[in-house]
Amino acid sequence: MRIVVCMKQGIDPKTVKISRSREELDLREARPQTQPEDKHALEAALRIREARGGEVVAVVVGSRSAEDTAREAVAMGADKAVWIVYKGQRSGKTMTALVKAAVERLGGADLVLAGQGGDLDTAGPLAGRLAAALGWPLIADALRFDVEPAGLYAVAAFEGKATRLPVVLPAVAEVIPGAERPRYPHPSRIAVAWNDGYVETWNAAEMGLEEEALAADAEMGGLVLGAERQRGQVIGGSPEQAAEELAGILRGKRLL
């Protein structure tokens, strides 16, 4: 069984500030990181492999620093990683075309896992697009997979509870954070992850993809800024009035 995990390198949101004067993101101290959402997908894949064997391949699309994410996937336990060097804009459509081509070049897969989109990730979650592109069923909001003699089952979030459904392979699943946290990279894997033989470097031309197939479906414009945070506001009135007013304010901010 081959499980492909789509992983992205994003930016650690804690290292990004908003420049209100320039109305743009201040990325001077930004640090790249493997998107935490994608580590949950890798963890799910590794657990399936541990229960029923097979191979876990991480597919990472990106420019130079994205190699680190491919290596990190190997350090966490992926058998190997494919790093697709792509310097252009990585819209959802572009990423889907590249990952689909990689799955085909790998000789197919039984299961493709992807995480939710990250905070600054404008390409968005890839699972739904990949399922449509590959023509495979989509399992949304998967929290966990159970390997049983009868086959593979997914436990997926469903309206506040969860539902258990058999996985008909091949399939694509979007993994959301479940009860278990992704494992730490293991030192003995960290030690070898940068050695030869773990990461294959591919590019779009090698996979037979042309410019048109990779054209972005969306591009980024400027920022729209809300009101600046204003501290120290006092809400008057009786406790009941203050409670009502505050509840209204917090609902507007989607905090309730």
Binding site: I18, D119, E219, M220, L223, V224, L225
Partner: peptide, 14 residues
């Protein structure tokens, strides 16, 4: 983005 501290304009081309 960033817990709705700002919003990124995404121009939908197709």
């Amino acid at each position: 983005i960033l817990d709705d501290a700002a919003r990124m304009q995404v121009i939908l081309l197709a």
